[in-house]
């Protein structure tokens, strides 16, 4: 049988497209002919592998994005993205002949041109900062302690004071007060983290803000809010790639932040 036809036969069997008689003939041939059986096995593996490739592709792309971020960050920080090679690169330094340095300089110049042209097309920190200014509003004080807390107790009054300072925009004071609270349950702990993150964000402590928002788990009642303010933090910090990654998640989730996330993504992509 012609190779192409044979493969088509195997494919049709694999996809369940053979009639009962054709299927019977196929199975008989597979039983009688070891070479054919080997081909069937091999093609089945390949077809399953292709289907798996299609399935895993979106997450593989996400991983590649993270990997790229790590490398970009390492370059910015002047570190090696792969720790194992750090020692090797410092230990076995070679002496490069002078004439070869010209080649390296030329290559470096070309690389600089490419990198700078790419950077020119990317959103600058000023752009992302402008987006932050447009979209950022401090998270409203919706978790009102006078309703949720126990008035008269020390904790409730500290919480009320923290909220009052936050509402009035006295962020250094609010920060101090929120930091003194531990939160009675997971929900309240996450609320405090969200307000703490907002205080840090307002006070330009962007690392601390990101940490506060990241510490709110994906299963929290305010997971979307945490992601939104994390994206705001990244916009303020000028790290567009990180902001985009979080905004894509929000857009995909389709919650109350999805439209705003898509708007920003349209502006920075």
């Amino acid at each position: 049988m012609d190779e192409e036809l044979e493969f088509e036969w195997i494919e049709n069997y694999h996809k369940g497209r053979l009639s009962l008689d054709e299927r019977q003939a196929f199975l008989e041939r597979e039983q009688a002919d070891a070479a054919f059986a080997g081909k069937v096995r091999s093609y089945r593996e390949i077809m399953d592998g292709i289907a798996y490739y299609g399935k895993q592709q979106p997450f593989a792309e996400t991983i590649r994005g993270w990997e790229q971020e790590i490398k970009t960050q390492a370059e910015t920080d002047g570190l090696a993205a792969h720790p194992a090679t750090t020692a090797q690169s410092t230990a076995g330094k070679k002496i490069i002949p002078l004439y070869r340095t010209y080649v390296y300089w030329a290559a470096a110049a070309v690389l600089m041109l490419i990198v700078s042209s790419v950077l020119l097309l990317r959103p600058t920190p000023a752009d992302t900062r402008a987006l932050y200014e447009t979209y950022y509003r401090p998270y409203p004080d919706v978790f009102n302690p006078s309703v949720r807390g126990e008035p008269g107790t020390t904790t409730a009054s500290a919480r009320e004071k923290a909220s009052a300072a936050y509402r009035a925009g006295r962020y250094p004071e609010a920060l101090q007060l929120f930091r003194s609270l531990s939160g009675a349950d997971r929900q309240e702990q996450d609320n405090i983290r969200l307000y703490l993150g907002n205080c840090y964000l307002a006070l330009d402590s962007l690392d601390a803000a990101a940490k506060a928002f990241l510490s709110i788990g994906g299963d929290s009642h305010i997971a979307s809010q945490a992601k939104w303010y994390l994206a705001m933090t990244y916009l303020k910090a000028g790290t567009a790639d990180r902001a985009k990654s979080v905004l894509h998640t929000l857009a995909d989730e389709g919650g109350s932040y999805a439209d705003r996330a898509r708007e920003i993504l349209q502006k920075i992509e």
Binding site: E45, I46, M47, D48, G49, I50, A51, Y52, Y53, G54, K55, Q56, Q57, A60
Partner: peptide
Amino acid sequence: DAYRKEVIVRLLNQLDETCRNVLVLSFYR
């Protein structure tokens, strides 16, 4: 089974993009 599939993923990446698209459209979609 997972490793066998991963081998195919690796080898598919050695094909050109058109080939990958044809095969994925046929066997995945």
